[in-house]
């Protein structure tokens, strides 16, 4: 079986040649089909940048990336966007302020060439736990959690196999975070999705993922299974530091 996602020796750069900044330094990891993979690290460690390079939003990269066995070029095509979708960090910024839920989903479905748009919108809203009453609302009429549900519905519209989650709950308050995380877990089980989840919160990653890469300063310092993480069997000092910090915070 081919892996859902394979990243090999990936480096990502920002800026032009005068002051080039290397945000990710030769990162490599593999995500099996149906797995849930976490990327953890402090802010600025390059975890979101990997997702941006993957989706083509950060065009300056070198190395190898392949999705479902297909090597990625500089340009992403429709097939790629049908396979890989992303949920953004801040639901207050990821929805167009002048478009209703209906408009957002209709356009997304049209772009992916679906024709039975009405029934699909109803099903998507149902999938993410929003009633039909939300269909014609504008973002300013929705709460943060509801907005994130709409964003998830949009990401699911193309029926992707891989969902990239860029800190999907960090902008939400704690009770809503749990709801969204549970929704994401349910959706993964239901649709057989593969997740790559970026988070700075070890508790969230431990809850959602089976395996995680710990990043610091653009480098992956350790790839660790969640059992090992729970048991404290870390290989790298930085991972234990992170673990220590999150234990202290909870205690």
């Amino acid at each position: 079986m081919t892996a859902a996602l394979e990243i090999n020796d990936l480096s990502v750069y920002f800026g032009d040649h005068h002051d080039l900044f290397q945000a990710v330094k030769s990162a490599s990891f593999t995500v099996e089909k149906g797995a849930s993979f976490g990327l953890v690290g402090e802010s600025g460690s390059g975890k979101s940048t990997i997702l941006k390079a993957l989706t083509g939003l950060a065009p300056q990269w070198e190395g190898h990336m392949s999705v479902a066995g297909r090597e990625l070029d500089r340009k992403r095509d429709r097939t790629f966007y049908k396979t890989v979708q992303m949920v953004f960090q801040d639901p207050y910024a990821s929805l167009h302020p002048r478009q209703s839920v209906d408009q957002v989903l209709t356009e997304t479905l049209q772009l992916h060439g679906f024709s039975d748009i009405n029934s699909r919108i109803e099903r998507l809203l149902q999938d993410v736990g929003l009633g039909p009453a939300f269909r014609f609302r504008y973002p300013h009429q929705l709460s943060g959690g509801q907005r994130q549900r709409v964003a998830i519905a949009r990401a699911l519209a193309s029926e992707p196999q891989i969902l990239l989650l860029d800190e999907p709950t960090s902008a939400l308050d704690v009770s809503v975070q749990a709801e969204i995380l549970n929704l994401l877990s349910d959706l993964r089980a239901e649709h057989g999705l593969t997740y790559v989840m970026v988070s700075h919160d070890l508790a969230v990653v431990a809850h959602m993922c089976d395996q995680a890469a710990v990043m610091r300063n653009g480098e992956i310092v350790e790839i660790i299974s969640i059992e090992d993480m729970r048991a404290g069997r870390t290989k790298h000092g930085y991972t234990s530091q992170l673990l220590q910090a999150s234990v202290n915070r909870v205690a």
Binding site: L57, Y81, Q89, D90, S94, P97, T108
Partner: peptide, 12 residues
């Protein structure tokens, strides 16, 4: 902004 990135990711 993220909503433009989001629609780009739909292939627009």
């Amino acid at each position: 902004s993220d909503y433009i990135s989001a629609i780009r990711l739909q292939g627009a």
